[in-house]
Amino acid sequence: MSQEATCSAASSSIANETVGQVVDRGPISLGRILTNRWFLHTVSIVAFFWLWDWLARSNVLGAGSSVLARPHEVLEQLAVLTREELAELTLWGHVWASTQRVVIGFSIAAAIAVPLGLFMALNRYVNAIVKPLFDLLKPMPPISWISISILWFGIGETSKVFIIVLGTFVPCLLNAYNGVRLVEPELYDVVRMLGGKRRDEILHVCFPASFPAIFAGLQISLSIAWTCVLAAELVSARSGMGYIIVQGMNLSQPAMVIGGMAVIAAAAWGTTLLVTALERKLCPWKRKIVGL
């Protein structure tokens, strides 16, 4: 068997493994258009905004404009916020204030929880000491810590970062821990057969194998971080998107409230995309997992 022949056989077997999506291009009919995915998406979004607008104009939800703002009013409000300062900050300043808290809290938690989780999975004694404490504190929602953190740190930055650290710590640690524990045990045998020591098993199997799980944990943590920062800002803050929302509530301006919600959704969405991109970069081996 010549080298070229083996190669081509090999590449054809790759082709066999790739399952192509077959697109059925039949004649265009009314039923086809009505069940087309993009058509339905468009219908859905248009209906959503129309319904929102209708609810805001009519008095179904209660008395007039102080209950719900129309979509374009929200946009106008956001435009105003980018120009005019609210508590000495423009919209971007508030976005930055919240993002900064999330990034700091999230980074601190990840930097401590991920190594600790790995360590717990690798050493039974560390696990025996840390796990029960962790189980004790785990069922308390991070938001329930807001009050005590205000008692401890006042209403400044520290207390908000503290809440975020607490909230994101749990999923980071749990996922790192489970990531190591669910590694295919025969991979350790491979390293040992190739002449590796315990150190190599950890370096070449435990760490890379737990990467996808760690990233899943980071994603969960991130959405928790946004919830936490928002809750903390709602309770007490002078800046941040939660502050915008609270101001909107106090001033009875639903446009400001909904604007704040929209911005925080966008920010949360953006950071999620960022972590996903980072994961793609760091774990190119990971197969695509189809999901929502």
Binding site: E186, L187, D189, M193, L194, P208, C283, W285, K286
Partner: peptide, 20 residues
Amino acid sequence: TGPGADRGLVFQGYMLFPWK
């Protein structure tokens, strides 16, 4: 007495490192 590099083992389930 233990596994070592003087023997090479090929596994039934391939056992390649997916990240390499």
